[in-house]
Write a protein that binds this DNA or RNA. Sequence first.
DNA 1: TTAAATTTTGAATGAGTGGTTAAATAATAA
DNA 2: TTATTATTTAACCACTCATTCAAAATTTAA
Lengths: 230, 230
Amino acid sequence: MSKDIKILVVEDDENLRFLAAMRLKTEGYQVLEEADGISAIQTITTEKPDIVLLDWMLPGKEGSEVCEEVRKNGFEGLVIMMTAKAQDVDKIDAYQFGASDYVTKPFSMDVLVAMLESKVKFLLNAERSEIHRFGNMEHHPNIHTLFRDGKKIELTILENRILLYFLRNPNQVISREDLMLEVWGYNSDVNTRTLDMHIVRLRKKIEVNPDNPQLLQTVRGVGYRFNVGS
Amino acid sequence: MSKDIKILVVEDDENLRFLAAMRLKTEGYQVLEEADGISAIQTITTEKPDIVLLDWMLPGKEGSEVCEEVRKNGFEGLVIMMTAKAQDVDKIDAYQFGASDYVTKPFSMDVLVAMLESKVKFLLNAERSEIHRFGNMEHHPNIHTLFRDGKKIELTILENRILLYFLRNPNQVISREDLMLEVWGYNSDVNTRTLDMHIVRLRKKIEVNPDNPQLLQTVRGVGYRFNVGS
DNA sequence: TTAAATTTTGAATGAGTGGTTAAATAATAA
DNA sequence: TTATTATTTAACCACTCATTCAAAATTTAA
């Protein structure tokens, strides 16, 4: 399996860092190393690794700060925090700083490798992401974005979800109930007006002439239908 | 209601699995059970269930792996992931592994049943996508649409219902009473003129020359007959 | 924290559909 | 032929459903 995955190990403990880097290299990963927060930020920015293994306690800058900062700069790779059990970081906290997951020290190299395996699989999967084309538009649901002739149109979370549902069920009548069930879940009590509102806004983004929708059409008394292809 | 839907529940927690299986059986589904990923893959391959309820965390193989693998083997049924809230899988992520939807644990059996209901409805709908052809026209009753040489003609709910009844009983004389019973039900008090009116409107949409109907013809004193070239 | 963006909601508006009436037309019977 | 009955059609009204608007509530970002 050709992984071709770049991992940055940020850890001030020489021994641990060396051990981890060694093992990851033998597993076939491309490995970079840093020992402090400042350098880590620089390396992440320039090298754009796929995964960052990041110690929680670092000289220079704390792991949480590093994580926050690179996220702000648009880094989208996975960040895995390494924390000592004593520090007892709540999982939630780690996520708050933009980390993707965490491991508690001490951990065996086998555990680390196993975890990375599953993360990598996830990465690879995410790459062959879903794209829907219709008319002169492209919908990339993963990044909540729509492109009209290459021009970017941002979608809100709900717009994205609604559009995705339509695109997965094109040329069919979708009842309001089904749509609301899909978007808001089973035990929600959102007003039906809300749905209308979102349809309106979605039309403004996808239709050439929103007053005379050609793609997202209403089927009176039944629901909506998204027309794709002939 | 004979559902005749086969559901496989894959869950290692005995209690939860038993509970779910129990409830689903009483709901009239045919239920299979597995406790680990390996067995699940085998059962899915041999039994080809319509729906798989799949735990995200499983011994042997993870839910995502199971999903990916059976998809690769050509399984086309619905896969619904069950995930703990803490795992916090984005809906989009679940889809990437080939899942059709997901529920977060803990969930009530009622929620589960409600969800499956809508999924099943969808399944059944997809199966019986009825289409009727006559002359140069195609009637797609599910989407309330008629195509004349590929050109779309929208039908209202009643037009759709009336036309469908005729197309299901072609080349026969349909009495006004039967038609009204079919369209408006038993305890309706609609005027018989109303029916005429709808026939007129329908003719305007389907006949080449509505003044001289060739398809939907009157049988004076009795009712109507829809002519379809044998 | 405040500000901005997003989502939700109730009320008002508007459009489309379905139903009725009554007059016009067609078919049948006397 | 005329009288009678059945059907077609147009015009109209009422009602439901969809849309829009404005504003409140909520979430997210700064």
